[in-house]
Design a binder for these strands. Sequence first.
DNA 1: CAGGGGCCGTATCGTATGTTACGTATTTTT
DNA 2: AAAAATACGTAACATACGATACGGCCCCTG
Lengths: 275, 275
Amino acid sequence: MVSSVAELITEKIDTMSAGERRAAQTLISSYPLIGLKTVAEFSQQAGVSSPTILRFVARLGFQNYPEFQSALQDELAAQLQSPASRTITARSPLPASTAPILEAVLENIRETFRHISDKQLADIVSQLANQRAHVYLVGGRFTDPLARYMAAHLNLIRPNVTHLVGQESLWRDRLIDMSKRDTLLIFDIRRYQDSLVHFAEKAHNRGATIILFTDQWLSPIARFARHVIAGRTAVPSAWDSSAALFVAAETLIGALTRKLETDGAKRIREIEDLR
Amino acid sequence: MVSSVAELITEKIDTMSAGERRAAQTLISSYPLIGLKTVAEFSQQAGVSSPTILRFVARLGFQNYPEFQSALQDELAAQLQSPASRTITARSPLPASTAPILEAVLENIRETFRHISDKQLADIVSQLANQRAHVYLVGGRFTDPLARYMAAHLNLIRPNVTHLVGQESLWRDRLIDMSKRDTLLIFDIRRYQDSLVHFAEKAHNRGATIILFTDQWLSPIARFARHVIAGRTAVPSAWDSSAALFVAAETLIGALTRKLETDGAKRIREIEDLR
DNA sequence: CAGGGGCCGTATCGTATGTTACGTATTTTT
DNA sequence: AAAAATACGTAACATACGATACGGCCCCTG
C-alpha cells in the first residue's frame, strides 16, 4: 500500500518522460501546494503544457485531475489534523507507554484553543453573565459528565442554572420554561445523539440561545447554535478524548467567575455560610 | 493589516447572519481544508446553499471565491514552508486572556504524568482488569462528574461497574457487597469531604482495594489507598482545575481498553447490537 | 538517409463550477 | 398586527477549467 503521493512519485519517476519529470520535481519542490492549484497554473510553474501535467497525473495512477487533488487534500488533512501524529507514527506503531496519547491530548487542547478567539469567549461569557436569564445544560452519553461538572460550578457563581438529567421526556417539560433570553448549553460529540439534536431544535424554535460544545466534525446541532466550541477529540486510542472540551469548559467557568466576581464573591460567601 | 483568514472571521463574525456563521464555524472546525474544495462541497458540509457560502466569502472582503481560496493557499504555503514556523504561529494566536490558565493546565497535566510511572499504571490496570471483581466509583462535589465519566466508559468495556450516586447513606448499603477482591475508585480533591473519607475507611476495613484520584496535597484517603494518582490542580483562577485528573482518567480507560481489547471488542460489539 | 515511434504542445470541446437574479420565508420594526 | 427589511434557497446563466483530438518535432532505428 502506498500512502502518500510523494512516495508514488519517487516510485514511478523512472518510467516518466522529461516533461513529466519536470512536473514531478516542481510538485515536490513546493509540495503539495502547486497540486492544489489549477492545471494551467501548475503547467506554467513547471514550464510545460497542460496536457503534460494531466499525463503526469495519469501516470501516477489517478483517473483525473480532481481525484489527484483530493488525494493531496486528504494527505494535508491528516497532517494538519494532528501535527503530533507524524512523530508518533515515526516512532513505534504500538507503544506500550502512554506518552503518545498524552502528547496527542496536549496538542488537542492547544489546537482547540487556537480556534477560540478572545472575542468569542467574551461573547459567550456575557451571554452567561445575564443572571436573570436561565441557563440549561445537557450532555450526551459520554459528555453528560462535562455538563454536570460545568453545572456544579455555574450553580455556585450564579442563580438559575439547571442541569437536565435523566430521560429526554423530562427535558421536554422544561422547554415550556425557555424563553428568548435563556441559554441552552449542549455538549454533543460523535456519535451525535438524535435526542439531543431534536431537543436543540425545539429549544431553538422557542428562541433560546444555544451554545454548543462539540468535536471538530461538528454536531448537527451547530445548525442551531449561536456559539460553537469545536474541540479536538482524536487520540491514538479506541476512544475519543473529551479533555479539550473539559479544559474549554473550565476556561469558560474561570472567565465567567472573573466577570461576575463582585456579585459572585458575595454569593459564594453566602453559600459557604449555609453549609 | 489582517494576515489570516481565521482572524478575519473572528473579526467579522458578529456582523454575519446565522447561515454565514454556520459557514464560518464549519470552516474553522476543519481549517482550512474545506475552503479549498468547491463551493458545492463547502455548502453541503456546512448545510447551507452555495450562495450563502459566496455571501460569506464576500463578507470577509474577497471579490470572488477563487481569491478567497488563494488567500487560504498562501497561508498554507507559509505554514508548510518551515516546520518551525508552525510552533511559532502555534503560540501567538492563543487568546491572550486565557493563555496563562491554559499554559498552567498544560503544565499541570505534564507534571502530573511525570509522577506516574508505567508500572503504577500497569498495576492499576491489572487491578481493574479482573472482570469478576466489582468496581465501584465515587466522587466528591466537583469530582463526581469525573467518576461518572469514567464509569460510563468502564461500563462499556467490562461488567460489574457501579457508579455510586446520591446520598452517602445510599453508598453505605453497597458496602455489604464489597469483598476483598473488589475495587473502589475514589475522586477526592480539596476541600476533602468527610463523607468520602469515612466511606473509604469502611470500604478499606472490608478489604476492598482503593484507588484514589486526588490533588497534589493528597486527600486523607491516601492513608487507605493502594494506589494514588496525584494530579496538579493549581491554576491562576478562583477555581482548581481537574483537567489533569480528567486526562489521567482517560489514560487509564485507554490502557484498560487495550488490555481487555480481545474481550472488550466483543463486548462493545454486543452492546452496539443491543442499541 | 529514410522511416517509424514516442513525446509534447496547440486548439477545440464538453462540462462542472462559480456567479447572479429572483421569489419566498422569516424576522424585525413601527 | 401590519409592513418593511433582511436572509436564504432555487434555478438559470456564463465562465473557466479539465479533457481530448490532432499535428509537428525530435530521436532512435534500420
